[in-house]
Design a protein around this nucleic acid. Sequence first.
RNA 1: GGCAGGGUGGCUCAGUGGUACGGCGGAGGACUGCAAAUCCUUUAUUCGCGAGUUCGAUUCUCGCCCCUGCCUCCA
Length: 464
Amino acid sequence: MGLKFFNSLGRVKQDFTPLKAGEVRMYVCGVTVYDQSHVGHARVMVVFDLLYRWLQQSGFSVCYVRNFTDIDDKIIQRAAENGEDVFSLTQRMIAAFHRDMDALGCLRPTVEPRATDYMPQMIAMIESLIDKGIAYLSDGGDVLFSVRSFSDYGALSGKNIDDLASGSRVDIDQKKRDPLDFVLWKPAKMGEPAWQSPWGDGRPGWHIECSAMSCHHLGESFDIHGGGMDLKFPHHENEIAQAVAANGGDFAKVWLHNGFVNINAEKMSKSLGNFFTIADVISCYPAEVLRMFIVGTHYRSPLDFSDQALSEARLGLDRLYEVKKRVMQLDDIALADQLLLPQPFVDAMNDDLNTPEALAVLFETAHRLNKAIDEGGDVTDDWSSFVAMTDLLALVQDDATGWFQSGVNDLDVAHIESLIAARKEARLAKDFARSDAIRAELMALNIILEDGAAGTTWKVKELA
RNA sequence: GGCAGGGUGGCUCAGUGGUACGGCGGAGGACUGCAAAUCCUUUAUUCGCGAGUUCGAUUCUCGCCCCUGCCUCCA
């Protein structure tokens, strides 16, 4: 079974064939850098990181472009609130974003363009749209895209212009010829950052940057364009309109949209204020737990965020680390010459990136490993598969012992180990009362002891 | 109002025209001085409701109920 994707454009699952054999060009909408990223952002980034890894694993050479929106109204507003320079705010937030992504195990894209570095490309695209009569300069000095001049408008989101217009929540703006027309370039107000253009000093509208940057790096037709479901309309619809109208070409062939992260069955978003930042979450849980939480649900399904959900992700990960720990305690661990992914895992990933199914294969492998260890059987093949799968998913990457002992300082470790040594003597002397007293003492400190063939090990008890 | 996506065991999450994957949890057992971990057995006559197509539907069709999202910035 080959690689298949559910293409939002047309809403069908279809075989994937890149435009150019062996190469995949993909663009993913990144973040607007005015604040910390939250769990919703984490989801997109992890989902497309998985896709990036999977495409490479499948033998493609991948050019992955993910932008930063570093100029926009919210950035200007936030910078003003902070009494901070726009550039310093965006620099800070980009650094924070990178920290979050590194913690989550997301690989850096091939290119991470920043909108402000692409003014000439955006201006050229807008000029081309004006030349073609598709964009116009309004009375207020805005350059607007005329939606009715683009016949395919609505193809991605399945919307019909007239339906949109009639039931619309869009404010009627007198400067617009049609309420759906959107801004390509807007004049700067006093004190705002501005760039020179044929229409005066100003800044670009939101949508044009993605069209300009994606086409600049990937050409006028490329393979995959991704982002959150909420970007489908109007953002992606507008990107298509701009790029196709200006350049011709098909723009993106496959559109992939991930579902939302919800809290209490409600979308997590900045505007509702019901969000947790990635930094918040990873201060309470190992970052891999957040990744596991995301990987455990298919990317297009809604994902309910809660403390309980994170705990469950952690417990699942614990099981995996438990196997790793047991394998590491084996005398002679070998890896096969080549780490082969099990076929069912490959099939699952090929099937529109079905990570829950892929995880099921991983857990089955873990179970077989445990069984083989219990029975003293050969572990090489399953362990090689286990490593191949966890490496691909970027899970279970920590040292197993460290995973279970995280958050304990050196002083406590010394204390724990001295108690374990004392208990060992008590056990040798068959003084089980003393032995149990020590176990109880450590349990009170949330430390669980495990007596194994190789001696006693300990781990931190997780608080549910 | 228009459009889109959902409703699967205690929780979570896959999936399929022939009665359901995995994880968490529960129960019993094995192992252990006691534990923990692991293993074994077990835990949905059932996949929102009703009707239809079919030898057979949770999976296809139609209707209904409920939930969420988009239609304004949003990953």
